[in-house]
Design a protein around this nucleic acid. Structure first.
Lengths: 136, 136
DNA sequence: TATGCACCCTGTAGTAACTATAGGGTCAGG
DNA sequence: CCTGACCCTATAGTTACTACAGGGTGCATA
């Protein structure tokens, strides 16, 4: 299978596939006589794993580790569980941060009347280190 | 005020302040005889505005626009409101995306027993393009 | 006077995870 | 023979900083 075909099958850009190869995430495939990359099923499975992990927010560094762990199929899967659990914690933290930020933003927007920039509460809220009335 | 002092006052790194200047967000300050940057109150206010906006998740490009809009204090503040509202929508979207991702991740983790990597449901979930039992 | 130290300067390169471009080669159809 | 779709490598761009390298300034101290 050529790179364009693999790209279509997995919903990945051609350049991204080459990038994964250069980063050591995807093994170098065989080459045709024309020096085209020639992929097989194992490449497709590995790329699917990578894309799925990325879609779930794992960094490439974590994907690299997950792949390494997944390669030893007789090892206990504690380590896999640990990587994924740590990621869940990080995602929860990010959601919490964004939610707090969202509240501040929303409060700020509610204060905007239909006046001029000079009177605008958004502008003055941004100009002060903390939102007026904000604890902490 | 020298750059180190401004950095301390606003909780910004010295390099970041210079970066904002080179990006055109912060006007070039006067220089002392020793060629040190010499800041006044207006710089501190502008930097505070930038940092507050960044903390609320605005991109530097948006900050640039907000600053431009805020500079004409007699204009109506509709445009400011629009930039901030658009950002709120984007933040809401990001929270929704992360929350969906969090659910998938959590489901996946619940399936992990204490077996080997070969049997691990996390590994097989990552290897399939969609989570088994996932709609869509 | 020398020297050490904290501070400042410019300019450049590194980070994450791609994406885009330049400049070229391969191959099937018309 | 030519066009167009595909492939190749190598390099630079993106965001918002951060971290050097290599050097200058200015004050206090030995």
């Amino acid at each position: 299978m050529r790179i364009g075909e693999l790209a279509k099958q997995t919903g990945t850009k051609v350049e991204t596939i080459r990038y994964y190869e250069s980063s050591g995430l995807l093994p170098e495939p065989a080459r045709t006589q024309a020096n085209y990359r020639d992929y097989d099923l194992s490449h497709m499975e590995r790329l699917t794993f990578i894309r799925r992990s990325r879609a779930l927010g794992f960094t490439l560094e974590s994907v690299r580790e997950l792949l390494r762990l997944a390669d030893d199929s007789e090892d206990p899967c504690d380590a896999v569980d640990e990587v994924a659990s740590a990621h869940l914690v990080a995602v929860d933290q990010k959601i919490a941060d964004l939610t707090a930020l969202r509240e501040e933003l929303s409060l700020m927007l509610q204060c905007c009347g239909d006046g001029t920039v000079g009177e605008c509460k958004i502008v003055s809220a941004l100009a002060s280190p903390r939102l007026p009335g904000d604890a902490g």
